[in-house]
Each structure stands twice: as structure tokens, then as C-alpha cells.
């Protein structure tokens, strides 16, 4: 028996809007059950990538397969295993939560009995039972988003695509949302692709795709990406920050440099002591601190370097 196809295989996937090249050429291989974060500044091509994978757009070039189904030729098959969450919750304010879920189940072509059961399951799973008969417009922003997740998962899709799902959520609802998605992954092996501007959310990903101006600028698991910055990041500020940077460069310890408003973030390889000694000798260095690299360092380094 052959191994199951990956969740997503894309080769040279690209999209233009008239003369604007929104997505250059994306190669992507996403394993089933993976948690994938799409990162990048506004206009990087994240939403275009997601709309392409959701079959709401046709590619201008390249090919892609979702669970082995061709993105252009087998759109219906892909849509059957797809759950979508957009930036704004898609919950009809004039329908109750239960009616919203039933509507989603019918859109997913579930037969009547299956649809009713799926709605009950989704309400249970997302702890929305008590709010089942509330109108969508009566829900707070946080509960609307949770109802939206219930809506997107009511038919238990194998692939969930979420476009900035945590925008505007308080920490409590954000946590609840991620718990729901984690449960979905654990219970069903659901593949999740999401975009976010909150880089800490991407730390838990199996795979991170960093886009800038429509092109892939980095991809890999978060640990590997952070390792490209160095083993430490030194944050330096003050009038002598540039001199310290030059000295560090001379010592050959600098791997990456990001200019900030007040100084530099330097990705370091090698021991900390030489740079600490250099900083101590420069009175114009007002702030000097080491910390482990984060995805934010990768983000700034890759997106600014290519600017």
C-alpha cells in the first residue's frame, strides 16, 4: 500500500492580480497533521496563498495538490476536506449559534441526520451548548470567534485554513481558541495552516513559512529558523551602539544584524564574553542584553534584509 499523500504539495505556486505579482513562486510540502504558520508583513502574500489553497483563487502559475487533489481540477474534492476561518468571524448575527452550525453543515453537504449530530458534537466540543440558542449578534467578539471555529470544524475537515484568527481576541479567548485547535489536531490529525502577526503563536508550529513581498524568504521548523539567527541575540542601544557593532563584526561573532529604532539586534555565534567586554568599554552603550533568539528576530532579519 502506498503512503498517504502529504496534506499540501505546491510547486512554483504563484498568483498575479493584473500586473501585480502577489505571490511569486511558492514551493511547499506540508505533512498531514502539521501545524503550519504563515508569517510576513502586510502584502507579503499570506492571504493570497490561503485563498489559493482554499480554491477560491486559481493560480497564475505552478501547481498544487491538497491531499492529492489537484488545486484546479479537483476543487470540489478539496473543499470537502477543508474548513475556513477568515479574519472576520463568519457568524450570521440573525441566526442562532446552532442554526449557524447547521447552515455550515449543510453547505458541507452533510445529510440531515449527520448534520444534526455534527452540530451537537461541535457545540459540545467547543462548550457552546449553553449559547446554542443565542443569536449570533448577541455574542461577544470572543464567543463569536469560538462559534466561528465550531462552524469551520462542524464537518470535521482534514485541513483547516485560518487567516489571522486571533486578531482582536483577548488572551483568554485566544487561549481557548488554540486549545480547541490543539484538541482538533490531537483527536483527528487535522492539518492546520494559519497566518498571524503574533509571532509567539507561531512558536508552537511544526513548520513556519515566512513570506515577504510575495516571495518565500524562509521556511522550516521554528527551532531551525531561530538557529539561523545565532545562539544568542544581543540587544544594544545608545550612541555607541554602531561602534560596538563594528567591533563585534571585527571579532567575527556577528551572524545577523537588525537595525531597530534605538540601536541594533545582533544575532551572535560563539561565546558572549568578548562582546560583553567590548560593551563594558564603551560608555555610550546605554542598553546591552543577551537573550535567546525568537521568531521575531528571524522575521525582522529576513523581511528587512530583503527590503
Amino acid at each position: 500500500m502506498s503512503a498517504p499523500r502529504p496534506a499540501i504539495e505546491a510547486a512554483g505556486l504563484g498568483r498575479d492580480y493584473g500586473s501585480t505579482r502577489a505571490l511569486e513562486s511558492l514551493d511547499l510540502l506540508v505533512a498531514r497533521g502539521a501545524l503550519v504558520g504563515l508569517l510576513g508583513p502586510n502584502g507579503a502574500g499570506k492571504t493570497t496563498t490561503m485563498l489559493l489553497l482554499a480554491t477560491l483563487l486559481r493560480p497564475s502559475r505552478g501547481t498544487a495538490r491538497v491531499f492529492g487533489h489537484d488545486l484546479v481540477a479537483d476543487r470540489s474534492a478539496i473543499r470537502r476536506c477543508l474548513g475556513l476561518v477568515f479574519q472576520e468571524p463568519c457568524i450570521d448575527g440573525l441566526l442562532t449559534v446552532e442554526e449557524n452550525l447547521l447552515f455550515a453543515a449543510r453547505l458541507a453537504e452533510l445529510p440531515k441526520r449527520d448534520a444534526l449530530k455534527a452540530v451537537d458534537d461541535a457545540l459540545e466540543r467547543t462548550r457552546l451548548v449553553e449559547r446554542a440558542s443565542q443569536l449570533g449578534r448577541q455574542l461577544s467578539g470572543g464567543w463569536r470567534r469560538l462559534a466561528d471555529i465550531a462552524r469551520a470544524t462542524v464537518h470535521r475537515p482534514a485541513l483547516l485554513i485560518l487567516d489571522e484568527p486571533t486578531v482582536g481576541l483577548d488572551p483568554e479567548h485566544r487561549d481557548r481558541m488554540w486549545t480547541l485547535l490543539d484538541d482538533e489536531r490531537r483527536a483527528r490529525g487535522t492539518t492546520i495552516v494559519f497566518s498571524t502577526h503574533y509571532l509567539t503563536e507561531a512558536e508552537a508550529c511544526d513548520y513556519v513559512v515566512l513570506l515577504a513581498r510575495g516571495a518565500l524568504v524562509a521556511d522550516g521548523n521554528p527551532a531551525a529558523l531561530k538557529a539561523t539567527v545565532g545562539n544568542d541575540v544581543a540587544e544594544i542601544e545608545g550612541p555607541d551602539a554602531a561602534r560596538l557593532l563594528e567591533s563585534a563584526r571585527g571579532a567575527g561573532a556577528v551572524r545577523t544584524v537588525v537595525r531597530t529604532e534605538r540601536g541594533y539586534r545582533i544575532g551572535m555565534s560563539g561565546p558572549r564574553e568578548p562582546l560583553t567586554a567590548l560593551a563594558a568599554a564603551l560608555p555610550g552603550v546605554s542598553r546591552f542584553a543577551f537573550r535567546p533568539p525568537t521568531l521575531e528576530d528571524v522575521y525582522f532579519e529576513r523581511t528587512r534584509r530583503d527590503a
Partner: peptide
């Protein structure tokens, strides 16, 4: 309010 995009993404099209 985004509902149309959701509907258009249904398998039936």
C-alpha cells in the same frame, strides 16, 4: 460580512 466568501467556498460552488 464575509458570509458570501464562505458560501462560495462550499463544495457545490
Amino acid at each position: 460580512f464575509g458570509m458570501l466568501r464562505l458560501m462560495l467556498a462550499c463544495p457545490a460552488g
